[in-house]
């Protein structure tokens, strides 16, 4: 499979501040610096309520941060500024530059696996059956292409979701606990296939997970959240890179 050439920083997020309030308690997410190189396989870990989903919403362009000094994404050599995009422009960036792998795959039940994988291509007015077949073969789901998601196992669904996330060669893939619904052995297989394909395609991957054992020695970088109580009723959660778990 032909890797995509990337140079410099694939994703750069600096000086991000996003706050939300609930029941009189203010939660503030801060990302001082998160710059990732093309093809890097990155993990984001943290306890429940630390802001992982909020970060994923912001990185997935479904939520606009309160403030971000730098928020850019490389797109085939162009640097896209993501701080001030409108709704339709964000949808366009999502369709062309970002891939998603959700906890249970997020496959559309009324489409076959092949149609699910082909959806991002079709959305970008592309058609590449050979690429679909290669991805499916690499992920071990070539036999499942014409089945509907309901007839697949959990692992097969996740592999199909990974294929859908990578089929249009996005610069960034966001995976929200992609192995949470499968057994440990399958989780490790999926992680390895995900990592391998990401490297091959030059896609930067951010995987949010609770399972720290899955990451040990297998990811390029790990980010975690540091929680602190700044004042009464104010919780600060700051993303920082950790050396090892």
């Amino acid at each position: 499979m032909k890797p995509l050439s990337r140079a410099g920083t694939a994703l750069c997020l600096q000086g991000l501040v996003h706050a939300r309030s609930h029941a009189g308690i203010r939660f503030e997410l801060r990302v001082p610096d998160m710059c990732l190189a093309p093809g890097e396989f990155t993990a984001v870990v943290g306890p429940s309520g630390c802001g992982k989903s909020t970060l994923l919403d912001i990185l997935g362009l479904v939520m606009q941060p309160d403030r971000a000094d730098i928020f850019t994404l490389q797109d085939h050599g162009r640097c896209l500024d993501l701080t001030c995009l409108g709704t339709s422009a964000r949808a366009a960036v999502r369709s062309q530059n970002i891939g998603y792998v959700l906890q249970t795959g997020g496959l559309l039940p009324f489409l076959t696996v092949r149609q699910n994988i082909a959806l991002p291509l079709a959305l970008n007015r592309l058609k590449d059956n050979r690429r679909i077949r290669e991805l499916a073969a690499n992920l071990g789901i070539a036999e499942q292409l014409d089945k509907r998601p309901a007839f697949l196992s959990g692992g097969q669904r996740q592999r199909a979701a990974i294929a859908r996330a990578l089929v249009h060669c996005p610069g960034l893939v966001l995976a929200d606990e992609p192995t949470a619904a499968v057994d440990e052995l399958t989780a490790m297989e999926i992680r390895d296939q995900f990592q391998c394909l990401g490297k091959t395609l030059g896609t930067t991957t951010i995987m949010v997970t609770h399972d720290r054992s899955l990451l040990r020695g297998r990811v390029d970088r790990i980010f975690s959240f540091r929680l602190e109580r700044a004042a009464h009723g104010v919780t600060l959660s700051t993303l920082h890179e950790v050396e090892a778990l």
Binding site: V62, A91, A92, Y100, P109, L119, L123, R164
Partner: peptide
């Protein structure tokens, strides 16, 4: 709702 959310997530406009 969830499936439509997925469509929105992968880039379908409103």
């Amino acid at each position: 709702r969830k499936d439509l959310g997925v469509l929105g997530l992968i880039g379908f406009g409103r």
